[in-house]
Nucleic acid binder design. Structure first.
Lengths: 246, 246
DNA sequence: AACCTGCCTTGATCCAGATCAACTGGAGCC
DNA sequence: GGCTCCAGTTGATCTGGATCAAGGCAGGTT
């Protein structure tokens, strides 16, 4: 179930369409979705929307990475979510953004105008269900992250972040063995610090330490190679199998 | 909208029923819900379910308080959610619990057997929509809590927790002025520490400090009086209005 | 070339909160 | 009364990560 029943050539990995349903109804919904859909692109660093501002669409990430952040008046900021391709952005039923959304890399969104999307949601249970499932996944992920923020040491935090990114990456480019993985860190040291509740200096020091111990290797300071994924996992503090989707 | 359309006398504050919909369909759904619903009670301290175990029902809290927690092998634990009356427990679409659920006070749940509940969800968009909305609220709350865990000082954490509990309490027992509030702390110092990512000693010290400064008053060590809610809010680090539902 | 500017690293010092430890005070119980 | 639990408080000390400060290095501009 939930396999893409039709080709989704021009909507990238848009999850809204990945569902199994009566072919006729689906065709109708699909055609309707087509009429309310459009694309937006953002350059790296550009804000998508600020907390408290009107957000007149919901969207799914097609390419690129975006961050959800909160900031206190004195400038302390916490990243509360990382949106990778296929992740959903926005909140049906609320027209105002709860968090700052920023394009971390160049970003393409597949957007749906809010009103008609909500209309469709009201008439079709399948889309709502898919959305519910995705939201529940995100909630679980947020809660797992609360353990990272509240109870893990700096080293465990870094290891956890690397493990998550490596895993999400492996899902996209299948075929990498879980043993040896390589990827490009999509985040600056500062962004990592904001995600982990640390300072950028601590992030830098901990990465250096992991490098010195051979748990990670890096060329430049963005390209990461993990020679033995198990050894990295051992540093996260999680028990052997531990889930933790980003 | 979302007002209870019919009396919900014997289901407490069960949110599943609070929705507006065609009266006839609603009646049918309601009758169906009746047939799959039952109650469970737990004593304070009793586990409801452990992470990884089978959970064959979804439920909503009728009376009492429950906690969602995660634990690392070495015993570090983080509370990732607090379930108060009307909150929803369980995950349609997944039969295995992601977190430990424990009754903090004596607890009554209104349960629905999983299979038929999921069946209903598939046929009726309204229940699914209500559930989606609740899940999105929980997700927002979890993300707001990430800021507390990642970036706030011990004092700000305590103040934030007290503010949340006071607010949730005021929602239930309407009529208390926001200025002066009084309530009974439902959590031990240790539970508060687990929620806030602190040690119980630090929690105790910070509460003592707030008491010494007259920001809170306490009789015994559970009953709390907040003489000036604004002064408490000023200690949370949030900007004046700041949301933050529990 | 020389000079930014943005991102990162490394060192020295400091301090908020953890840790270890002793003690208080109320509730239940013989 | 004396006892044993808890749950909470308070004190003394330690330490992981924050803070402050000084470079390093790659890419872009003039």
């Amino acid at each position: 179930m939930n396999a893409p029943v039709f080709s989704s050539r021009d909507c990238g990995t848009c999850p809204i369409r990945h569902r199994a349903v009566c072919a006729r109804c689906e065709q109708e919904e699909l055609e309707y979705l087509e009429t309310i859909k459009y694309y937006r692109t953002y350059e790296a660093g550009q804000p998508v929307v600020w907390a408290g501002d009107q957000l007149d669409f919901v969207a799914s990430v097609v390419v690129g990475i975006a961050s959800l952040t909160q900031t206190m008046e004195d400038g302390r900021t916490q990243m509360v979510g990382l949106l990778l391709p296929s992740d959903f952005l926005g909140r049906p039923g609320r027209a105002v953004a709860s968090f700052n959304v920023t394009a971390i890399s160049d970003l393409t969104l597949c957007c749906f105008r809010r009103k008609p999307f909500e209309q469709l949601l009201r008439s079709s249970p399948t889309i709502g269900q898919r959305l519910l499932e995705m939201t529940l996944d995100e909630l679980d992920a947020a809660r797992e992250w609360m353990l990272v923020l509240g109870r893990k040491t700096a080293r465990e935090k870094i290891a956890s972040l690397l493990a998550i990114i490596a895993r999400r990456n492996a899902q996209l480019h299948l075929g990498q063995t879980p043993e040896e993985t390589t990827f490009i860190l999509p985040l600056t040291r500062e962004a990592m610090a904001d995600y982990l509740g640390l300072t950028l200096e601590t992030v830098s020091r901990q990465i250096s330490a992991l490098k010195k111990e051979g748990i990670v290797e890096l060329e430049g300071n963005r390209r990461i190679l993990i020679p033995d994924f198990g050894r990295l996992l051992a540093e996260t503090g999680d028990d052997a199998d531990g889930g933790m989707p980003a």
